[in-house]
């Protein structure tokens, strides 16, 4: 039903089929490259992993212990790390790695495979009719900022996003979105603080359709996944969207802060269970945080990362590409 949403690639004729990574189109976004923004990550603990490979003389127990600790330091999580180490050691036992570099290549492949298994990283919005993107997450991960960046991102792709200020709870969240609306030139639909989000969304979609918008992005209040009443509210919002616009939301993006540790997995799991997440947006990747929990999420939930926030400027949003991501970590 949905066509793959095409970005204004330098080569517009290029056919990008579903399932293929977006590395080819990412250079169309006029910002620093993902490799550049990951420089800090690379210099950090994954950098340490890389150095470890370079210096390892023999792959002894101490080597593996240290490798384990460094993966854990990158928030990859105790379980995924243990699996990775077990696999690498098994391979080493079958046929010894000739060098640290060989082990590095193997680890890179394993990490890439985890991310690739998680699924398609493309954004899917219908080419006909209005596409709806619902943005959700716990408090403070950068939902509103992501909505703004996504607006710019989609504008560059030739779309005209219409924003709905669904965060009626946090003080001044509506003002924050309006500021971004002014900066991006996108229309912001808002009602008074404290109003029912589902009602705002219902009216907002109506307003967007009557204005002939092609894309709606809905900001929501941050909520801890443990608050059952707030999760029920979100489920209601999702139902209302579906009722107002058949087939919507086309994308439900969970915004995850790269600083988040192992709780990120529980967050993703809970949001997925209640409203059906289609992809992750990993934010604040420009900090020194590693965001390694995405490996645990990919492994356990098969939930793809679709976009990464790589800076504080409005155009610091990149499509996520698993192989490039891992390559950047080790290059």
């Amino acid at each position: 039903m949905f066509k793959f949403f095409r970005r204004p690639a330098s080569d517009p004729g290029a056919e990008t089929s579903a399932g293929v990574s977006q590395a080819a189109t990412s250079d169309a976004v006029p910002t620093a490259s993902i490799t550049g923004s990951l420089g800090k990550t690379r210099g950090g603990l994954f950098g340490a992993v890389r150095n470890l490979f370079r210096t390892a003389g023999t792959l002894d127990a101490a080597f593996w212990d240290e490798l384990e600790e460094r993966l854990i330091a990158a928030d990859v999580g105790a379980h995924v790390t243990a699996d990775l180490i077990t696999e690498l050691r098994a391979r080493d036992a079958r046929r010894a790695f000739a060098s640290g570099e060989d082990a590095e290549t193997a680890l890179r492949e394993l990490l890439e495979a985890i991310l690739a298994r998680a699924g398609d990283t493309g954004l899917y919005l219908p080419e006909e009719g209005v596409g709806v993107v619902l943005v959700i997450g716990v408090n403070g991960t950068g939902k509103t900022t992501t909505v703004a960046k996504l607006t710019r991102y989609l504008q560059l792709g030739g779309r005209a996003p219409f924003l709905i200020a669904g965060d009626t709870f946090r003080a001044a969240a509506i003002d924050q979105l309006k500021v971004w609306g002014d900066r991006t030139g996108a229309t912001v639909f808002a009602q008074s603080p404290g109003s029912d989000t589902a009602a705002v969304v219902f009216d907002g979609i109506g307003a967007a359709i009557s204005r002939g918008a092609d894309t709606i992005i809905i900001d929501t209040a941050g909520r801890l996944h443990t608050k059952t009443n707030l999760m029920a509210e979100l489920e209601k919002v999702r139902r209302v969207i579906g009722r107002r616009q058949a087939g919507a939301p086309h994308e439900t993006l969970l915004v995850l802060d790269a600083v988040t540790g192992q709780n990120g997995l529980i967050q993703a799991k809970t949001f997925m269970g209640s409203v059906g997440v289609t992809g992750l947006v990993l934010t604040k990747l420009d900090s020194s945080a590693k965001g390694g929990v995405v490996f645990a999420i990919a492994e356990e939930l098969r939930l793809p990362i679709k976009l990464v926030g790589t800076g504080e400027r409005i155009d610091d949003l990149q499509p996520f590409d698993p192989s490039e991501f891992v390559r950047a970590l080790f290059s």
């Binding site: 854990i72 330091a73 990158a74 928030d75 716990v138 403070g140 802060d257 600083v259 988040t260 540790g261 192992q262 709780n263 990120g264 967050q267 900090s287 020194s288 945080a289 590693k290 390694g292 929990v293």
Partner: peptide, 12 residues
């Protein structure tokens, strides 16, 4: 700092 912070908490 959030209780959700991962390994980065120490560096921060």
């Amino acid at each position: 700092a959030s209780a959700m912070t991962g390994q980065e908490a120490v560096n921060v």
